[in-house]
Simulated scan of single mutants.
Amino acid sequence: MPSAPSEQGKPIRVLLICDLPITAWGLAQLIGTRQPALELTGSVATVAEARAHLRGHGADVVLYDLDGANPLALIGELLPGFRGKVLAISSSRVSTLADEAVLAGANGLLCKSEPIEMLAKAIEKVRGGEFWVDRLATVRILETIARSKAQEDPAHEKLARLTRKERLAVAELVRDPRASTADIARRLDIGERTLRNHLTSIYAKLGVNSRVGLYDFGARHMPAGELGMER
């Protein structure tokens, strides 16, 4: 059944990258059945051909088949100057493939074992700015990004060692450096002894030796959003 046009009334322009002739033909036919919502602007076999096509014709979504000779690593070559989205598609059931696709620059991964109607839905979702990955993949991707940032940023790595309560204590001190230990403990709903234990642990983890040093570290490196963390 044909799909309805997008909210703007214009079809989503799709460029297919697939070097497997039978698969490419089948996907092209499937996209054709979803007119007027989807419009196939072209079908190419390589990333180099795709870049040339995008320069001349553009596209809203690139459908990138991973089952042929085009590797994940080449997704990044599509991104410079391309304002659209990339949806990878594969027959693989390896759970971490979605993680690898997103980290390589794609906006999601659709498994070919999914029902046919999922293709149009996935294309529409990524075109709208969403990621086509499941919840577990999202968690793994965020953890991978966090670890990568920690390795690149020593201060971030130190902050990552803190427990949630310790981060809250640092945030309170940065927000109100003149607050007494008793005041901060009361705001965190913990005892003063517990707070002192937290501070001892925080000093060791961050490599500081005083509240002044802790304030300086927190003010320079604590993410601004954490200053409003809920207790």
Rank of each mutant, 00 (worst) to 15 (best):
residue 155 A to R: 12
residue 138 T to A: 15
residue 101 A to V: 03
residue 146 A to V: 07
residue 84 G to R: 02
residue 103 L to I: 03
residue 85 K to A: 15
residue 102 V to W: 00
residue 113 S to Y: 15
residue 103 L to A: 00
residue 111 C to P: 00
residue 149 K to I: 05
residue 131 F to M: 13
residue 149 K to Q: 14
residue 115 P to K: 05
residue 127 R to C: 11
residue 116 I to F: 13
residue 110 L to K: 07
residue 75 I to S: 02
residue 151 Q to W: 03
residue 129 G to S: 09
residue 123 I to A: 04
residue 135 R to G: 08
residue 122 A to H: 09
residue 92 S to Q: 04
residue 146 A to G: 06
residue 125 K to F: 00
residue 84 G to F: 13
residue 95 S to A: 15
residue 159 L to C: 04
residue 113 S to P: 06
residue 126 V to C: 09
residue 150 A to L: 02
residue 158 K to C: 07
residue 117 E to R: 12
residue 146 A to L: 08
residue 152 E to D: 10
residue 106 A to L: 01
residue 150 A to M: 09
residue 106 A to M: 01
residue 107 N to G: 09
residue 130 E to H: 09
residue 81 G to I: 15
residue 95 S to F: 06
residue 109 L to R: 10
residue 81 G to Y: 12
residue 104 A to W: 02
residue 90 S to G: 07
residue 84 G to E: 08
residue 147 R to D: 02
residue 121 K to M: 13
residue 84 G to P: 09
residue 97 L to V: 04
residue 119 L to G: 07
residue 105 G to I: 06
residue 137 A to D: 10
residue 120 A to Q: 14
residue 130 E to G: 02
residue 74 L to S: 15
residue 159 L to D: 10
residue 80 P to I: 14
residue 132 W to H: 13
residue 91 S to L: 03
residue 94 V to H: 15
residue 108 G to I: 01
residue 126 V to N: 05
residue 129 G to R: 08
residue 110 L to N: 10
residue 78 L to Q: 03
residue 143 E to P: 05
residue 108 G to N: 11
residue 79 L to Y: 06
residue 75 I to R: 06
residue 133 V to M: 01
residue 87 L to F: 01
residue 131 F to R: 05
residue 90 S to I: 04
residue 106 A to S: 06
residue 149 K to W: 11
residue 84 G to C: 14
residue 115 P to T: 09
residue 130 E to C: 02
residue 159 L to Q: 11
residue 107 N to F: 05
residue 153 D to C: 01
residue 148 S to F: 05
residue 125 K to I: 06
residue 86 V to W: 01
residue 152 E to A: 15
residue 140 R to W: 06
residue 105 G to N: 03
residue 124 E to D: 10
residue 109 L to I: 07
residue 132 W to I: 09
residue 87 L to Y: 01
residue 87 L to N: 03
residue 92 S to I: 01
residue 99 D to P: 06
residue 145 I to M: 10
residue 107 N to M: 14
residue 88 A to L: 05
residue 120 A to I: 10
residue 112 K to Q: 11
residue 96 T to V: 12
